[in-house]
């Protein structure tokens, strides 16, 4: 009896909790937390709340595919908008967990390029996996300028690191083998192309000191002198260079990726969520402010007009940097990740 009363009380408490949350409207945003969330709060969340009256409850999340799957299985969706990396986006999209977006409402003035507007997500920010170089460790008078140079251990001796996963590395291997960045995925879609990538990776395998698994690792490896050259996320390297470590980004053959935002199917706050996505993506001035604080620029037209020249030149989508890179194909990886990951696991243990 007591237990039952407690239970009823508990349920009421939940009900009261939910209804009061609905009264002063708020949306839940599943982001990365940390420094990024603080910048988002100043640039986007606080002004959005002021303008619309909708508060943004930003969560620090990781492992979002598991969380989304659990929500769909349990039938209780607790996030409205989620930030998703390319693989998370592809998985969520192919699994049907994302709400279709109405771009006529989000981008009525058409300030976003079509690549940024997917049926069930938008690309709110971009980052790139690039070649990071300790300039003080380079041989006298030489500069490492491509993945082919990274593979050239004769000219450029020294420790190297790559991420322990097939994504990016298969692309880098093909580019090192002479494939043009634009053709990477047409080659990689074939069995022979995949064999070619793994064969090229065989060449570099004995020279890789460390296979990193978290974005902070290449930063630490480079700054401790553990390795001289590594693949890394561009923003981390910009920050490391600011700390006085002689490290440089080479954009050639970098893999640009979207940071996607999407509304989770089952969210009860679709209108407020679409407004928030619009707020994140379509104001060039605000996006420029964000990009000047965190080197992960959005895709809105005219962004670079609001940025200082030397800030802009450090960003992956800057006209000078973008042409030499390829865009990581989220859909290709969504479809092929399982199989290629198995092959990768076999390969790495060989």
């Amino acid at each position: 009896m007591v237990i039952r009363q407690l239970f009823v009380g508990f349920t009421c408490a939940i009900a009261v909790g939910t209804s009061s949350a609905a009264a002063n409207e708020s949306i839940t945003y599943a982001g990365a937390g940390g420094g990024l969330a603080q910048v988002m709060k100043t640039v986007f969340d606080d002004p959005f709340a002021e303008q619309t009256g909708v508060a943004v409850n930003a969560l620090a999340t990781s492992d979002r595919v598991s969380a989304l799957k659990a929500m769909q299985v349990a039938g209780r969706v607790t996030w409205d908008v989620s930030e998703l990396n390319p693989i998370e986006y592809a998985t969520a999209s192919l699994s049907g967990w994302l709400q279709p977006l109405d771009w006529a409402v989000i981008d009525p003035l058409g300030v976003l390029p079509p690549e940024a507007k997917l049926p069930d997500a938008g690309i709110a920010a971009t980052f790139s996996t690039v070649l990071a170089i300790r300039t003080d460790k380079l041989p006298e008078g030489k500069t490492m300028n491509s993945w082919a140079d990274f593979w050239d251990v004769e000219t450029f001796p020294g420790g190297r690191a790559l991420q322990n996963q097939p994504i990016d590395n298969l692309e880098f291997a093909l580019i090192a083998d002479g494939v043009a960045p634009a053709d990477v995925y047409s080659v990689l879609s074939t069995e022979e192309g995949q064999d070619r990538a793994f064969a090229k990776l065989d060449e570099i395998k004995p020279h890789i000191t460390a296979w990193w698994t978290a974005g902070a690792q290449p930063v630490q490896l480079l700054s401790d002198g553990e390795v001289d050259y590594s693949s890394a996320w561009n923003g981390r390297i910009t920050k490391l260079a600011e700390q006085g470590i002689p490290v440089e980004i080479n954009w050639n053959g970098g893999g640009i990726k979207g940071s996607y935002v999407a509304i989770i199917k089952g969210s009860q706050k679709i209108k407020a969520s679409q407004d928030y996505i619009s707020f994140l993506m379509t104001d060039a001035r605000r996006s420029a402010k964000f990009a000047s604080m965190v080197p992960y620029p959005g895709m809105v037209n005219g962004l670079y007009e609001h940025l200082e020249a030397d800030t802009g030149s450090n960003l992956p989508t800057h006209p000078d940097n973008v042409t030499a890179q390829f865009v990581t194909d989220a859909v290709f990886w969504g479809k092929n990740l399982s199989a290629l990951k198995e092959r990768w696991e076999d390969w790495i243990l060989e």
Partner: peptide, 20 residues
């Protein structure tokens, strides 16, 4: 090193890709 993968590493990577 690259060969020092333990079962728990694989479990964590399978959970995060949704292969429960």
């Amino acid at each position: 090193g690259r060969k020092d993968t333990m079962l728990a590493n694989i479990i964590s990577s399978q959970v995060s890709t949704g292969n429960w």
